[in-house]
Design a binder for these strands. Structure first.
Length: 512
RNA sequence: GGGCGAGUAGCUCAAUGGUAGAGCAGCGGCCUUUUAAGCCGUUGGUUGAGGGUUCGAAUCCCUCCUCGCUCACCA
């Protein structure tokens, strides 16, 4: 049974009073004719058209929205209502409505209620576009008061937010309330939507086919991560929530779909942090007859396209860093990058023992049981990654941490793979895809041999994937990107929770 | 999982061992161009939960919960 606060009890009483007067506090329909921006635009157009000294043609409108501010002054009331796109002032006066209706507005309606108001557009003494109300009605009563937020607009137009909802947990848990009171938050999610829309648009225009592949998979693969496990009752079968789309998308290349992509949710059963949510949005594409160098070019074009469409520019600031996404991005061979920051040339250390020995002079030491590839990965994340601020493609990776990538023709221990880094973190990952079924099978076997059972780097053998590859897979380049990271960059948010509508949080029941 | 910090009214925050407070929101008044409207009055609390020390705990101690930062883990 819901327990109501004293504030809510007062509002519940008002609902009963409305019902007693024959007024439905939750009517079925609204007669809105204008959103706030349209009404203001219509007023401005009429003012422009009017001849000097003549009052402009009357603009009538029915507006609808949530009451966000109320300033009752006895015989008149000013209020602001907010709709999806903005705020507009409405003005109620006994001259038009009579004392009884003005009192009704002041006494029976509350902040947060949805109302509609009809009348004509005017300007107040202060010049603010305002609806002079001739009729109004309630559209939906709010039982609970919104977490308060008041805006003060200064002379210079800047807005100070008073009593804003700031508790980050509450904002994430009750995103609906956060969105209702914080217009900036609505803007972040509009931007997120636009980023995804323009990613699609870019790939569609480059003849990529958007496809949907299974989220519930009998064998997981395509990435190094722990999966979530679930169970199909009737089939009596364990299923995994996918950790990547890779193996399914590449099956489609076997089927002569030459350019495919998917934007969807991946699930990884790992730690939660400011840049990790258990489910996150991933973009992957696979491109037949391309290699990782062509993918690199397409990547920088794609990001620049999205930035231009969404932000109107390819240079923008993230957490105080001025980032320039204008193609071409910097290209840096992983070996060279590591040599620059550590003085160690991985090419002169062909074994893990030798490389581990060289690493002993560094101030941070890796897990001594690591394979050579894992040692290189350690060097990358510890010493090189934090230095990569401007968009940079790091390329040519060790083979044993890249079991699905194709080796370089002249160097079997190195694969054609690149990762895009920006602002000190990884944005995307791509390679010339391994399409030799015999090589792929031996890679799977290698993983089984060199990595312990619980190692996330270990990929389970996927027999059906090998069967598909044996029918022949065209040479191709593949690409994967964490869309949430891109959204963080373009909205200048440091925490992934700020760009997920409903980030993962512990259940409220667990609290005490 | 480790370290540090935080949790007080619907919201934003005070109160450092001695009667739990302010602003906003709410409620009752006054007010015909306000805009964080203003003025007068007023309601509202298991101080995250539990235990302990003390004559007395929001405050000190212990345990737990949640959140944030950070380290570890982690494409």
């Amino acid at each position: 049974m819901t327990e109501y606060s004293s504030l809510e009890k007062i509002r519940l009483e008002k609902i009963e009073q409305l019902k007693a007067e024959g007024i439905n506090p939750f009517p079925h329909r609204s007669q809105r004719t204008h959103i706030s921006l349209q009404a203001i635009a219509a007023l401005e157009a009429a003012e422009k058209k009017a001849s000097p000294g003549v009052s402009p043609e009357e603009v009538t409108a029915t507006l609808a929205g949530r009451i966000r501010a109320m300033r009752p002054m006895g015989k008149l009331t000013f209020a602001h209502i907010e709709d999806g796109d903005g705020r507009i002032q409405i003005f109620l006066r006994i001259n038009e409505l009579g004392q009884e209706r003005v009192d009704f507005f002041n006494n029976k309606l509350d902040l947060g209620d949805f109302v509609q108001a009809s009348g004509s557009m005017m300007r107040t003494r202060a010049g603010e576009p305002t609806l002079l109300v001739r009729d109004f009605s309630i559209l939906a009563k709010a039982v609970s008061p919104l977490p308060a937020a008041k805006d003060e607009t200064l002379e210079d137009g800047s807005v100070i937010r008073h009593a804003a909802l700031e508790d980050s947990e509450l904002r994430a848990r009750q995103r609906y309330a956060d969105l209702a009171v914080n217009p900036d938050v609505r803007k972040v999610f509009r931007t997120r939507s636009a980023i995804i829309r323009f990613l699609r648009e870019f790939l569609d225009e480059h003849d990529f086919l958007e496809v949907e592949t299974p989220i519930l998979q009998p064998i997981y693969g395509g990435a190094a991560a722990k999966p979530f496990v679930t169970y199909h009752n009737q089939l009596k079968q364990n299923l995994f929530l996918r950790i990547s789309f890779e193996l399914y998308l590449k099956r489609l290349l076997v089927g002569n779909l030459e350019r495919v992509y998917e934007i969807g949710r991946d699930f990884r059963n790992e730690g939660v942090s400011f840049k990790h949510n258990p489910e996150f949005t991933q973009l992957e594409f696979y491109w037949a007859y391309a290699d990782y160098l062509k993918v690199m070019e397409l990547t920088e074009q794609m990001i620049a396209y999205v930035a231009t469409q969404v932000l109107g520019k390819t240079k923008f600031t993230y957490q105080g860093m001025e980032l320039d996404f204008t193609p071409p991005w910097k290209r840096l061979e992983l070996r060279q990058g590591l040599l620059d920051v550590t003085g160690i040339d991985i090419a002169s250390h062909p074994t893990s023992a030798s490389l581990l020995d060289a690493l002993k002079k560094m101030n941070k030491t890796p897990d001594p049981k690591s394979t050579r590839g894992k040692l290189i990965d350690f060097m990358l994340s510890e010493f090189l990654e934090p230095t990569l601020i401007q968009p940079t493609f790091l390329y040519d990776y060790p083979r044993d941490i890249s079991p699905l990538a194709k080796s370089k023709a002249n160097d079997p221990m190195t694969v054609e793979r690149f990762e895009g880094y920006v602002a000190g973190f990884e944005l995307c990952n791509a390679f010339t895809e391994l399409n030799d079924p015999l090589d792929q099978e031996s890679r799977f076997l290698e993983m089984g041999r060199d990595y312990s059972q619980d190692d996330e780097e270990k990929h389970p053998m996927d027999e059906d994937y090998l069967r598909a590859m044996r029918y022949g897979m065209p040479p191709n380049g593949g690409f994967g990107m964490g869309v949430d990271r891109l959204v963080m960059l373009m909205t200048d948010k440091h925490n992934i929770r700020d760009i997920l509508l409903f980030p993962h949080l512990r259940s409220e029941e667990q609290n005490s």
